[in-house]
């Protein structure tokens, strides 16, 4: 490396670093020029988009259509060619209910239990996640001591794998876990938190919030920091009370970020599976059985696996997600029109 008198690295470093790039470009230059002559400019655009289109097609679109085909077939055979066409029977079976609010009245009662659980989970998760991450972002946006440390602390769980998250909390909450060990020190009897229907559901919600809150806090924090400080100073000059500042200035200006967070939390909550599966396994009973776990177990894990039914359930879940996302996007667009930062 050559360093000149000014302390800057000399031009040779850049030249050396660029040499392999230049060599590679030299190799592809001639064939690409030939291709452009044949395919034209538009054709070149398609050529460069092709790898991504292929990946999307093979790993997203194709499985989607195969899944749809599975949902129209019956039996437990794995390969599509060995399966019999049953039309919409699988959907009909899922919807075969005398009272949708009572899973026991349905032919596929576990599906409706999972739907009910997931519904509750989504409501609690979205409400609490927004509340906690907003409050955390507001606190972290203040002039705290060691602010960077606290930001890192709140973001840290996001870096953990969901299985690790599930295991950590299992070790804390199980009968011989850390929580009971601590409580025992204060004279309390140990309690099997994860064997209690209410507590295990609450744990599923809480653990999921703990694991992902950092990410949403970060999005909201970025939104808060993008609000110009002098708007708050103008409000201060106007003698605006802090609650009114929050309701009339912070919240409306944070709305684009809040909408993004709501969409992301909602989609993730509907898809909840991994950390809760490790934590409770869906139990006790079916108290923490969620839709994705139902699909997974119906399709792959039970003795009498039914890929067709699982495929139908996942198509229904996909429809719900698409509808929710479209509603949120619509809301986002109207909020952009009615305000937002300019």
């Amino acid at each position: 490396m050559t360093i000149d008198g000014s302390g800057k690295t000399g031009p040779r470093v850049g030249e050396i670093a660029m040499a392999p790039v230049r060599f590679a470009m030299g190799l592809v230059d001639a064939p690409l020029r030939k291709l452009q002559k044949v395919a034209g400019l538009g054709g070149m655009a398609t050529f460069f988009l092709l790898p991504n289109m292929l990946i999307f097609g093979i790993f997203v679109l194709l499985p989607f259509f195969i899944n749809f085909a599975y949902s129209m077939t019956g039996g437990s055979a794995l390969f599509l060619s060995d399966r019999s066409f049953v039309g919409v029977d699988q959907y009909a079976r899922l919807f075969d209910c005398s009272n949708y609010l009572d899973p026991n009245s349905c032919a596929e009662d576990t599906f409706w239990t999972a739907v009910g659980n997931t519904g509750w989970f989504v409501v609690l998760q979205v409400t609490l996640m927004i509340a906690f991450s907003l409050v955390t972002a507001l606190i972290l946006n203040r002039d705290l001591k060691a602010r960077s440390f606290w930001r890192a602390m709140f973001f840290f769980p996001v870096l953990l794998s969901p299985v690790v998250v599930g295991l950590i909390w299992k070790w804390i909450l199980q009968r011989q876990g850390l929580l009971n060990f601590g409580l025992y020190g204060f004279g309390f009897d140990p309690y099997a938190w994860l064997n209690d229907r209410t507590w295990s559901f609450a744990a599923a919600v809480a653990v999921s919030i703990w694991a992902h809150m950092g990410f949403y806090t970060l999005i909201l924090l970025a939104g808060l920091q993008a609000i110009p400080k002098d708007l708050y100073e103008a409000a201060e000059m106007d003698g605006t009370r802090s609650m009114r500042v929050f309701m009339r200035i912070t919240l409306p200006l944070l709305m684009p970020n809040l909408l993004v967070v709501i969409v992301l939390v909602l989609i993730r909550a509907v898809q909840i599976f991994d950390e809760v599966y490790v934590l409770t396994g869906g139990g006790p009973g079916t108290s923490t059985l969620f839709l994705t776990q139902y699909i997974y177990e119906t399709g792959f894990a039970t003795q009498l696996r039914n890929p067709g039914l699982a495929a139908a359930a996942s198509i229904l879940m996909g429809v719900v997600l698409v509808v929710l996302t479209l509603v949120q996007l619509g809301l986002g667009r109207s909020s952009d029109k009615n305000g937002g930062r300019k």
């Binding site: 100073e233 103008a234 201060e236 000059m237 200006l253 305000g339 930062r341």
Partner: peptide, 19 residues
């Protein structure tokens, strides 16, 4: 407090509430 001084300020960026 600023609000009780009876002053009004015009900011360089105008500080108008955009929404």
């Amino acid at each position: 407090p600023a609000a009780d001084r009876g002053l009004a300020m015009v900011f360089q960026s105008y500080a108008l509430y955009p929404h």
